[in-house]
Structure formats: C-alpha cells, structure tokens
Design a protein around this nucleic acid. Structure first.
Length: 107
DNA sequence: ATTATGACTTCAC
DNA sequence: CGTGAAGCCATAA
C-alpha cells in the first residue's frame, strides 16, 4: 500500500509534534492539493488501521473530531486528553493554540 | 471507463 | 447565526 498521496499524508501526520494538532486542509495544502482535504481524512481512515499514525491529531478546520467514529479504542478525545489537549463535545478547546501548521512550523 | 462515496471546505440562502 | 447545497480529488466497486 503506497498511495503517493497517502504516503505524503502519513509523513506529515507522523511529523506532528506532541500535544499538537492540525487540520485536513492544512495537510492537503502542504501537499499542494488543498482541494483534497477529504482525501487526507480518507487516508487517515486507512492509516490508523494499518500504520501507527496519530490520526487523532488530525481534525477538521474547526478542531472538531469529525473522524472520532473511526477510532475503535480509546476514543479520540481520550488520546488528545492524554496529550494535554482538552476536548469537549467532540471539539478541541483552544484549537487555535494547539494548531500545528506544516506549511509554517514544519517548513 | 463510469458511478458512487467520503475523517473536508466554502459559498449561498 | 444556522442549515443546505456545490465543489474537488483520490479510492473503491
């Protein structure tokens, strides 16, 4: 399994530092295809099952755990809480503060 | 090759 | 301010 797009997504997601989160759009934009934000999440769906990808650090633009349903256990919010990230009502608190932009911080 | 689907995003009403 | 619809791209059937 080596979908080029997926591969890039995995790489970026793996590079996400501890207690840090990012959005699908940000990753997609970093890959040069900001229109493919959906594919990023789609990749995560496969990534979390097949690889040790911290998909729980990837949320939508508003910091909402849109993909929590893809996590068997523990819950996405628990994983984030384990990193000191507060989550309430499936939404990351102070998301802007935890936001990690690959284009800005990684580059 | 074509159709359907989706962990998104943005514009419109 | 809230809900709805359309757009875009890659994967799967």
């Amino acid at each position: 399994m080596e979908r080029d797009f997926f591969e890039d997504v995995y790489e970026v997601v793996k590079l996400i530092p501890f207690a840090r989160v990012t959005s699908y759009g940000a990753i997609a934009e970093y890959l040069g295809a900001k229109r493919s934000a959906r594919m990023v999440g789609y990749a995560m769906n496969s990534a979390d099952k097949t690889s040790n990808i911290p998909a729980h650090r990837v949320v939508n633009r508003v910091g909402q755990l849109s993909g929590k349903h893809a996590f068997a256990s523990p819950s996405m919010e628990e994983r984030l809480a384990a990193e000191g990230i507060k989550v309430e009502n499936d939404v990351i608190i102070d998301f802007n503060a935890y936001f990690w932009n690959p284009n800005t911080e990684l580059l």
